[in-house]
Computed example of a mutant assay.
Amino acid sequence: MRIDSISCSICLLLLVLIEISCAPVASKEVEIPSNSSRILPLKDSRKIDPETTEIFLDANYDTTAHKTLKDQLGDLDPNTFVELKYLNGQFYLYDSCDGGFVAYKVSQDQIKSYGIHEDIDFQIVNQKKTDLNMVFELTTDGYSGPITMSITRTPVDLVDKIITLKNGVATISYATAATNINKFYAIINQCPTTKVSEFEGFTNPNF
Rank of each mutant, 00 (worst) to 15 (best):
R2C: 02
I3A: 01
D4Y: 05
S7N: 13
S9G: 06
S9D: 10
C11F: 01
L12A: 04
L12E: 12
L13D: 11
L13W: 04
L13M: 08
L14R: 10
L15E: 06
L17V: 08
E19N: 15
S21Y: 07
V25A: 14
A26I: 13
S27F: 14
E31W: 08
I32T: 08
N35P: 04
R38F: 11
I39G: 07
K43D: 06
R46H: 13
I48K: 07
D49G: 02
E54F: 05
D58I: 04
T63V: 00
K70H: 01
L76V: 05
D77F: 01
P78D: 15
P78A: 06
N79I: 01
T80A: 10
F81W: 08
L84S: 09
L84K: 11
N88K: 13
N88H: 14
Q90D: 12
F91R: 11
Y92C: 05
C97R: 02
G100V: 02
V102P: 00
A103R: 10
K105W: 01
S107G: 06
Q108G: 03
Q110P: 00
K112R: 12
S113Y: 15
S113M: 11
D121F: 03
F122Y: 15
Q123T: 12
V125A: 12
V125P: 00
N126Y: 07
K128H: 09
V135Y: 00
T140M: 15
D141F: 02
G142Q: 05
S144G: 00
G145P: 05
P146M: 07
I147P: 07
I151D: 03
T154Q: 08
V156Q: 09
L158H: 13
L158A: 05
V159F: 10
D160Q: 13
T164A: 07
V169Y: 10
S173W: 01
Y174T: 05
A175K: 06
A177G: 15
A177F: 04
A177S: 15
A177Q: 15
T179L: 07
Y185K: 05
A186H: 09
A186P: 11
A186I: 06
I188G: 04
I188P: 03
I188C: 07
Q190K: 15
Q190I: 08
C191N: 15
T193C: 01
T194M: 10
K195I: 08
V196A: 11
V196T: 14
V196N: 12
V196P: 00
S197N: 10
E198M: 02
T203Y: 00
T203Q: 06
